[in-house]
Amino acid sequence: MTLDEIKDILDAETLSAHCDGNTPVERAYCADLMSDVLCFSFTNSLLITHLTNAQVIRTADVANIKAIVFCQGKKPPRETVVLAEGKKIPMLVTGYSMFDSCGKLYEKGLRGKSESDT
């Protein structure tokens, strides 16, 4: 699924100046605890979270997260946006709750786990 498709499904707004809508994401992961992301997420996943602090971007960077969706209309502060642009991690914000955001993406075929995962 591409970022443009995700944006449409979630009626989301792009927060990054340089966001290539054709960027593909392979899987999705939703979490607010950064150790959870670091421990269990897969490379090139989409991260869906309620948190907008700078640590989310740093976590996404070390865990090789492809893009971030901030749910429930939570807009990140300026320092988060600046940091993400520096690390070239695209960000979207959606008004949907985390539950409905995940549900809508799942319904359209995005998965958190694939057959090859252990």
Binding site: A54, R58, D61, V62
Partner: peptide, 30 residues
């Protein structure tokens, strides 16, 4: 907290520049 994670991020960059294999970079930076 404003700078928390900077050190690991910089370490990640160093390892990338040194040509360390990506799976090992991920483990080290995590």
């Amino acid at each position: 907290f404003a700078n928390a994670g900077n050190a690991s991020g910089s370490l990640k960059k160093v390892l990338e520049e040194m040509g360390v294999p990506p799976p090992l970079i991920r483990r080290a930076s995590i």
